[in-house]
Simulated assay, not measured.
Amino acid sequence: MHALIVVAHPDPKSLSHGIAAQIAEGVTLAGHTFEIADIAAEGFDPRYTATDLAVHRREVAPAADVAAEQARIDGADTLVLVYPVYWWSMPALLKGWIDRVFANGWAYDEGTGIKPVKRLRHLKVHLVAIGGATTRTYARHGYFGAMKTQIDHGIFDYVGAPVATSELMLDTETQGPAEHLEAALAIGCSLFEARHSQDEAA
């Protein structure tokens, strides 16, 4: 099986990139394949333009860069998003990637005279968010619930893609990277086990 690992961080030496690499290593150890989409290094343009709006209105086909990202997702069994928490959310780069790539007519169908359809039911999603604050801080302010509402439900439930796992790796500013990198390797090794257990439960 094949995993598309999307990492959104401008520094290739960041913990985000290290975690993405460890997840990829775990996928390989489990006998599967992966692709890492470094959307910062690749120069993906996250700006939602008039053309993207026209795509939403089903007036034009997606731009070439968007179509290329959709093709990468179409070739994957599982989508993994690895990103730092910026201002209690995902980076604008990743949000813009979702805004443009998860378009009407591909990720879902809606519009006048169109019965709404969630088109990504086949795609399992794994979220790995990396934050500097403590678990206590996140819990006190209700961030765990907010993350599930905004991302798990607000994005992926809308297109029908079930979130198999949702991880928050915290205390990254006070702890060394070893524990988080070890956890990332374990995530990679069990990535498709989570898929299989969910499929069996369904």
Rank of each mutant, 00 (worst) to 15 (best):
V66Y: 01
V66M: 08
V66R: 03
V66F: 03
A67W: 03
E69Y: 06
E69K: 14
Q70C: 07
A71H: 02
A71C: 01
R72N: 05
R72G: 05
R72E: 03
I73C: 07
D74A: 09
D74W: 02
D74G: 00
G75D: 02
A76P: 01
A76D: 02
D77I: 00
D77R: 04
T78K: 09
T78M: 14
L79Y: 08
V80L: 12
V82I: 12
V82T: 09
V82P: 08
Y83N: 09
Y83V: 05
V85D: 03
W87K: 02
W88A: 09
W88N: 09
S89Y: 05
S89E: 08
M90Q: 06
P91H: 05
P91E: 04
A92F: 06
A92Y: 02
A92N: 00
L94R: 00
G96L: 10
W97F: 12
D99H: 03
R100P: 03
F102A: 04
F102L: 15
A103E: 01
N104W: 01
A107L: 04
D109M: 05
G111I: 02
G111M: 01
G111H: 05
G111N: 05
T112Q: 14
T112G: 10
G113E: 10
I114P: 04
K115Q: 14
P116C: 07
P116A: 05
K118A: 08
K118E: 10
K118D: 06
R119Q: 12
L120I: 04
L120C: 03
R121I: 08
H122P: 00
L123R: 03
K124S: 13
I130F: 04
I130N: 01
I130E: 05
G131M: 01
G132A: 00
G132W: 00
G132N: 00
T134H: 03
T135C: 11
R136S: 15
T137G: 10
T137Y: 13
T137S: 15
Y138E: 08
R140D: 15
H141E: 12
H141K: 13
G142I: 10
Y143A: 06
Y143N: 09
Y143R: 04
F144R: 13
F144I: 11
G145I: 09
A146Y: 14
A146N: 13
K148P: 07
K148E: 14
K148W: 10
Q150F: 13
Q150D: 15
Q150P: 08
Q150A: 15
Q150V: 15
I151C: 06
I151G: 02
I151W: 10
H153T: 15
G154R: 08
G154Q: 12
I155F: 10
F156Y: 13
F156H: 07
V159Q: 00
A161H: 00
P162M: 07
A164F: 00
A164S: 13
A164W: 00
T165R: 15
T165F: 07
T165Q: 15
T165V: 09
T165E: 12
S166Q: 12
E167R: 14
L168F: 14
M169L: 15
L170F: 02
L170M: 11
L170Y: 00
D171G: 06
D171K: 04
T172G: 02
T174V: 11
T174N: 00
H180G: 11
A183F: 11
A183N: 12
A184E: 09
A184Y: 07
L185T: 06
A186T: 13
A186C: 10
A186D: 15
A186H: 12
I187W: 10
I187K: 11
L191Y: 07
L191M: 11
F192Q: 03
E193L: 13
R195F: 01
R195H: 08
H196K: 12
